[in-house]
Amino acid sequence: MEPAIETTNLTKRYGSLTAVNQLNLKVERNTIHGFLGPNGAGKTTTIKILVGLLRASEGTARVLGQEVHVDQADLKLGIGYMPELPRFPKHLKGKELLDIYGRMYGMNQLERRAQIPKLLDLVGLKGRENDLIGKYSKGMQQRIGIAQALLNSPELVILDEPSIGLDPVGMVEVRELVKTISKEGMTVFVSSHLLFEVEQICTHITIINRGVALVSDTLQNVSNLISGPITLQVEIVNLNESVIAALKNLPYVKDMTKSNNTLNIPLKTFDDVRAEISKTITNAGGIIVAMNTKGHSLEEVFIQLINKTQGGKP
């Protein structure tokens, strides 16, 4: 089966500005793929090309196995798209909007009657469906935006900054929703500039900056990309030289640092060696009172990658 999204040397120029530069992106099916980058990185431009709102200057984009062109109606049967800060006709009621969009998807009355209340319930707009969208708050517009993106139970859901405009509770709900729809077999491509959001929900990520993809891989591999494996933080009572010497003899332990009674132990391995470390410390007379793993957060990776491409400039 072809990837849900595949771009080859995708480029978009606005005059002298190159918004997307030779982007090669692959989003496998049944994954939650985060599209991460700072504001102005080219995320929304890329997405607009993928959904046929913009024409690429160069390169190709394939979505659900079909090459994307502007004005390609049938391709959109398989795509659910929520734009960044979505805007819907103010004169329509929430339910009317979903009903009309449902008709565009060719859903019959029975399907619409079954699907629309479920979606309204899912996004927390039950009871407000008969209000005019003009009276909706920004957060409610965001919610109806998610509902309309899921209306046709699409194969691919593209969410452009879905958390913008939502309160903290709403943000958590959106994250849960993304996980839920992924479990239903939909591929989710979600753009965000919020690192923690991507870290919490995505299985794969692509980091983009200034129109260039810096990295694209599984979340784990991207997290490990820059600084290698994790560091163990061990708090020890009776931390003496024999404990440190014993640990130094372990082949997978790099240079340690000591802070009061806590040891930071960077590891050279990706294997889980906590049991062996624990045993070594105990045998050397130390008493472990706490042990934590300290990974390389996406934020660290992100900043390092951005710095690399920008020569250290933020």
Binding site: L92, I100, R103, Y105, G106, K118, M186
Partner: peptide, 25 residues
């Protein structure tokens, strides 16, 4: 929310009428 495994392609008339309705309202 149930996934529609096989989606029916909407007819020309269904899409046309949906847009007309959207605009009429």
């Amino acid at each position: 929310m149930e996934r529609q495994i096989e989606k029916q392609r909407p007819t020309w008339l269904q899409r046309f009428w949906a847009i007309t309705r959207y605009e009429m309202l």
